[in-house]
Nucleic acid binder design. Structure first.
Lengths: 345, 345
DNA sequence: ATGAAAGCGCTAACAC
DNA sequence: GTGTTAGCGCTTTCAT
């Protein structure tokens, strides 16, 4: 028999059995004291607890999960953690999760549907209790199908059929941005969109259009396709700023592209904001460190991630699938890249 | 009996038993076909596979892990994902992990030892197969004790007693940075350090000192305490630049502080690099978008994270604890924030 | 108040 | 080739 004596210093981890043996009780009693379930005599409890510390016992969550079907872990499916916005979401989600004793499994999909599907399958196999999906650009039906019966909450995108998403009204945020430009006296507005299938990009585009149409004065407008990256903003900015009708106000679909636009302007010898105002979207950390400091619409990634987990957690507790969507307000962050038309400096 | 008929559309997930029943074979046969272990007749294999797809079967990794002691998951213990450097590490680690079918559990410690300890305990309970620890500032002995017998690799810090760390020679990188300043003709050098207990900060400080001492010409030098954040760099920069002996070259312990220094200089009406050259460390994405673009020492977070997982994986395969440390070369990234003393522009 | 025993979903000898 | 059986570490009735 290969029984290790309980006081032997063995390299293998102590199990509930070892504790039981050492304490001279049954495994169920040990189980009771760890879970504080059922009645246990004070003296036995003490004996067991001593045995636990003596053996440096820590329960095997895997075995526990097998029985209870609870793993105290969730999946976080995002396009890319090295994108600051998603990194913030990740941090918010993880903070909220650990506060409830949950762990989060990180999955980077790079916006690819097949990777999302793959991760979802893996997560299911690991019996995560739910999943936070952020920034997906996949068609809703396909995505929902891949999620299957996993409890989930969606971030940065509104799920049409569900009451479980955390989002911002990107359209309204875009309107705020556009109106800001208009209020500054800009009359020739341009917008640089996100990549083609980005829901948030589309919403922002729609907001730009809506704000422009709502405005009384006739405006000239241009729209250019971007990609949410500095380079795309730079290229679009170059084209816009060299065109026949140079815009006096540019709303870039996100901060990265706004930074690209500013570079383009500087390359062309144009001054921001004197010659052209530029506003971004997201309010990434970098926005306050570039020159000129970027005016933008704030998108609170950390809070959104936090809210997402909390929403998921509520779902898990109550067994009811739908709760109320959480909506964040887009707020204008005024900095140096926009200024009143004609204002000197 | 609550047996669900195999063709009934039940909400509960199919198990290996259900597959076995549907295919009319035993569970071990099913197990054999999923694991491609042992002999299975072609016809039986087909039957089983059909049953699997029909039931949309996917094996329960929890149960599997209970038996095999393998969970195909690791922990990633970092201070903060919203720090771009660690986000890059996270991405690199995750990419390398998923390539081997491993999942990574994200843990943010905020540099706090007790959080590190807490996460390590949780990870142990979840039976992760190993852990990648990056950026810790805890005393080595304490940290190693908390890690216990978990296989691990350390990133951004060299473990004294182990042969399992991925790191950069920060001291040498700092020497490169300092020498660059010196070669540019700077004669009054200043260094802004990281927070007190940061190993990388200390190494960079040491490198600065060493480079200065190695230089033949007598130099004036100053060292100021920083905190690795923009604000700390700003404050230190202000003090340095307003002092009696204004430095003509500043080596900031990281890029964030370098950006702070540049802001301080601009606030004081000083030009960078004409009046003072500034060099950072890390080469974060932001470095190329600030004005002037930051000269810095590159630290390849993504590659380091990738290397870390691969090293851990090798360890797990070979059962041997020690392999060779992986060392990355610090490389100078020349941009606009440094220039030859006296050079006009 | 405590123990015995069944079983979570799967793997791995060991039989046949 | 395929089935039987005994666990993995734990929870949970059900007795006692």
């Amino acid at each position: 028999m290969h029984h290790d004596g309980p006081n032997e210093c063995d390299p293998t981890v102590a199990t509930i059995k070892d504790v039981a043996r050492l304490a001279g009780v049954s495994v169920s009693t040990v189980s009771r004291v760890m879970n504080e379930s059922g009645y246990v005599g004070t003296d036995t409890r003490v004996k067991v607890q001593q045995a636990m510390v003596q053996l440096n016992f820590s329960p095997n969550d895997i075995a526990r999960g097998l029985v209870s079907k609870k793993t105290a872990s969730i999946g976080l499916l995002i396009p890319d953690v090295s994108n600051p916005f998603f990194a913030d979401i990740a941090r918010g989600t993880e903070d909220a999760a650990i506060a409830q004793g949950f762990s989060v499994i990180l999955c980077n999909s790079d916006w690819q549907m097949d990777r999302e599907r793959m991760y979802l399958d893996i997560l299911r196999g690991k019996w995560v209790e739910g999943v936070v999906v952020a920034g997906s650009r996949s068609p809703e039906q396909v995505l929902l199908k891949a999620i299957g019966d996993l409890p989930f909450v969606m971030v940065d995108r509104r799920a049409v059929h569900q009451g479980n998403s955390v989002w911002m009204d990107n359209q309204r945020g875009a309107m705020v941005a556009t109106e800001h430009l208009f209020n500054l006296g800009c009359r020739h507005l341009a917008h640089i969109t996100g990549p083609e299938h980005s829901p948030s990009g589309q919403a922002r585009h729609a907001g730009f259009i809506q704000a422009v149409e709502a405005s009384a004065s006739v405006l000239q407008t241009q729209v250019m396709q971007g990609d949410f990256r500095v380079d795309g903003g730079y290229r679009a900015g170059l084209q816009l700023l060299q065109g026949q009708q140079r815009p006096d106000g540019i709303f870039a679909g996100n901060d990265l592209m706004a930074i690209g636009v500013i570079h383009a302007a500087q390359f062309l010898g144009l001054r921001v904001p004197q010659d052209v105002s530029v506003i971004g979207y997201d309010n990434i950390a970098m926005a306050q460190y570039v020159a000129p400091k970027l005016t933008t619409i704030d998108q609170p990634g950390y809070e959104m991630g936090k809210a997402a987990f909390e929403m998921l957690y509520r779902q898990l507790q109550s067994e009811q699938e739908l709760s109320e969507d959480v909506e964040f307000e887009p707020t204008l962050v005024l900095r140096e890249s926009t200024q009143n038309r004609g204002q000197k400096r």
